[in-house]
């Protein structure tokens, strides 16, 4: 089940890196995330901006498969989401 988490969790920590994947179709946003997550320190947050509906499901699924943490997904005013991921290792 997908859930649109609200700002309650994770809002305390600003992202250390923002990846702009707006306009890019899956799997490109996830490839960008996988390539760049190691640029933030452990426990740092990466924010992926994406508007392909597949990214909304696939980034949390990627986190589950790769043992990183999906913090929350925030709707963007212009469409799409800022999907926050915490680097776990």
């Amino acid at each position: 089940m997908t859930s649109r988490q609200t700002a309650a969790e994770g809002s305390t920590q600003p992202p250390a890196l923002t990846i702009d994947a707006l306009g890019k179709k899956c799997p490109i946003p996830i490839i960008m995330l996988a390539e760049q997550i190691n640029q933030v320190p452990r426990n740092g947050i990466v924010s992926v901006l994406a508007d392909d509906p597949a990214a909304f499901t696939d980034i949390p699924a990627w986190c589950r498969l790769k043992s990183h943490h999906h913090v929350a997904s925030y709707e963007l005013p212009g469409g799409g989401w800022a999907i926050h991921v915490r680097r776990n290792y």
Binding site: T2, C26, I30, T57, D58, A61, L65
Partner: peptide, 24 residues
């Protein structure tokens, strides 16, 4: 069930509801 193979360009509602990887 990937979105790029659907006329709607949306991933399959089944895969979405399950919360599993929809691409590839």
């Amino acid at each position: 069930g990937s979105s790029c193979t659907a006329s709607t360009l949306r991933p399959s509602h089944v895969l979405e509801a399950m919360g599993v990887l929809t691409h590839g």
